[in-house]
């Protein structure tokens, strides 16, 4: 079947198998910031935002994205490649080690920051509970997301 959806502000029209997952489709068409860590919805590496909500793309059928809006970590930076404050803050806090979980973390964190401009530590922990990271111990990821919130609040004031 053929579906059409918005991927990081581009319109994608693509032929899919109705049983294909969204994760498989995205990686197949080159959206490889979406990672496959477990294919079972346990690790969060494949997280994307579907109509503004972070979800595990490995547990969605690609067909479910038809007519909807999909955002990935690759779409966060601006058109000239300038990093989003969240990307900057996460790297600078030391929240990126191997980087494999990072795109998924970014998606879950964006969800949080759009609904809560000043999340406390516990709110960040709750928001990222579905994103497994084996490198950082989460300390600096949590710090990075809170730093990003501060950066975004400053930008709001300016």
């Amino acid at each position: 079947m053929r579906i059409e959806f918005e991927l990081d502000a581009r319109t994608i029209t693509v032929e899919i198998a109705p049983g294909e997952t969204l994760m498989t489709l995205l990686r197949r068409i080159g959206a490889v910031s979406v990672k496959d860590g477990c294919s079972r919805g346990d690790c969060g590496s494949c997280a994307v935002r579907l109509d503004g909500r972070a979800v595990t793309s490995c547990l969605l059928f690609a067909a479910q994205a038809d007519g909807r809006r999909v955002q990935t970590a690759a779409g966060l930076a601006d058109a000239t490649g300038g990093l989003h404050p969240l990307q900057r803050a996460l790297v600078d806090a030391g929240g990126v080690q191997c980087g494999y979980c990072t795109p998924g973390v970014l998606m879950a964190a964006m969800d949080l920051l759009e609904s809560d401009p000043d999340p406390g530590e516990q709110e960040v922990r709750t928001a990222l509970a579905g994103n497994l990271c084996r490198c950082t111990g989460y300390v600096k990821i949590i710090e990075g997301v809170r730093d990003a919130a501060a950066l975004l609040r400053e930008a709001e004031h300016d």
Binding site: G30, V32, S33, V34, K35, T72, A73, A74, L76, A77, G81, L83, Q87, R88, L90, V91, D92, G94, V96, C98, G99, Y100, T102, P103, L106
Partner: peptide, 17 residues
Amino acid sequence: NERKVDGRALVTGQPVF
């Protein structure tokens, strides 16, 4: 605390794996 040399590629989801 310099910025990690691969930080930009990783945080923008470049095809590096």
